[in-house]
């Protein structure tokens, strides 16, 4: 019962080790998981679950791989 979270680029340092496997994320939405990881949801440009783009209110399932794509050069910093 696990979900793999793979932050990309600028988001990587926000998750220790660069990616993480969450054992209790199934049944939660992407937004809820982002909040738990203290990642600002509004700065995540795209969320891909199993290589398909989804909205952040998508409920995650066991075995999902979640890739988080940030904006980079848009004036974030």
């Amino acid at each position: 019962m696990s979900v793999t979270i793979v932050p990309v680029g600028l988001l990587q340092p926000l998750v220790p080790g660069g990616s993480t496997v969450l054992s209790d994320a199934a049944g939660k939405t992407v937004s809820e998981v982002l909040a738990e990881l203290q990642i600002d949801s509004d700065l995540v440009a795209m969320v891909l679950v199993n290589s398909r783009q989804v909205p952040k209110d998508t409920v995650l399932s066991d075995g999902d791989t979640v890739k988080l794509i940030p904006f980079v050069g848009g004036g974030r910093r």
């Binding site: 990309v8 509004d42 440009a45 795209m46 891909l48 783009q53 909205p55 794509i69 940030p70």
Partner: peptide
């Protein structure tokens, strides 16, 4: 670049969902 796959797959249309969120 780790974001290449996603940006290439969707192009600028990839931000439609975010813009609404």
């Amino acid at each position: 670049a780790p974001g290449l796959e996603a940006w290439q797959k969707y192009g600028t249309a990839g931000v439609t969902t975010w813009a609404n969120e």
